[in-house]
Write a protein that binds this DNA or RNA. Structure first.
Ligand SMILES: [Mn+2]
Ligand SMILES: [Mn+2]
Ligand SMILES: [Zn+2]
Ligand SMILES: [Zn+2]
Lengths: 143, 143
DNA sequence: ATTATCATGATAATCATTTTCAATTGGAGA
DNA sequence: TCTCCAATTGAAAATGATTATCATGATAAT
């Protein structure tokens, strides 16, 4: 899957007339080998560990490109920081976010998605994207 | 309903040992007589129209108190600005947000809420709050 | 190799929001 | 009503995340 994501990004880069650089590849490797839902700063720290000369701005810019290329998605959990998650082609999921330990559990529920569509239809609304997040205490933190 | 909200806020102020001020009452009146989902800046402009000497910080601080008192709820639609909506006791709703004109349509769907609870239960997750927003094109903008 | 572009890193600039602080005000008690 | 102190206010500085600027360096097509 990493291979495919890398190709997808490189194809995007090429299609846009952009250039392949050692920094972009470095950020890409760090992103693909990291957990999902990392903040820009967290990613920056990981990249920094590999190459301390990388600039903060480069990480910001590269992450935005990942989102545009479709291999990542920007998410906001209300803590004031932008996070990026891995995107699998044609897949969608929502989140359970623990307000105590910060852990994030992903889930998919076809029934809910269908009901959302019905609601939108009732209002003549054309859905492009949606977000659903349940905030609370995860099972580990409840013990 | 305005009466009740005002009382709720004044009770909150008193219970916390805070003081009732002309500025807070002014912001409260503007908030209660405005549409929901206004950004802090939009509210500030409305208050400013009544009393041009009000400070920006006061509006920020007061809106936070509204949220704490339970008469308002902070919401984020991803445009980088905090918005506040009116809260009716014991009521909950979600949103359809038009990405073209910015209009917001509220809706309630008991079936979805129930399914959300089931999902959380499956993961042993205790839900405290949740948000669900459908982004897309509203019926007016589709015509 | 040459050249036209694009990318990078350092730094300044933005933007929304928060904090600081000196001056003012509210309101409980005398 | 008067006092007094804690709470409040407005202006301005500070903050934190993100973006823009710009001189320098790298990429890749010719
Ligand atoms: Mn996710
Ligand atoms: Mn609402
Ligand atoms: Zn937890
Ligand atoms: Zn619209």
């Amino acid at each position: 899957m990493k291979r495919a994501k890398k190709k997808q990004f490189h194809d995007f880069i090429a299609a846009r007339g952009l250039k392949s650089t050692r920094q972009r590849d470095m950020v890409l490797d760090c992103f693909l080998s990291s957990d999902s839902h990392l903040s820009t700063e967290e990613l920056y720290m990981k990249v920094r560990a590999k190459n301390s000369s990388i600039g903060y701005a480069t990480v910001y810019r590269t992450l935005k490109l990942f989102a545009e290329s479709g291999i990542a998605r920007e998410i906001h959990f209300g803590d004031g920081q932008t996070r990026y998650e891995h995107v699998a082609e044609g897949e969608h999921h929502d989140h359970l976010v623990c307000t105590r330990c910060g852990s994030v559990q992903e889930f998919e529920n076809e029934a809910i998605e269908k009901l959302q569509q019905e609601v939108a239809d009732q209002f003549g609304f054309l859905v492009e994207t949606h977000k659903m997040e349940l905030y609370g205490i995860c099972s580990k933190c409840r013990k």
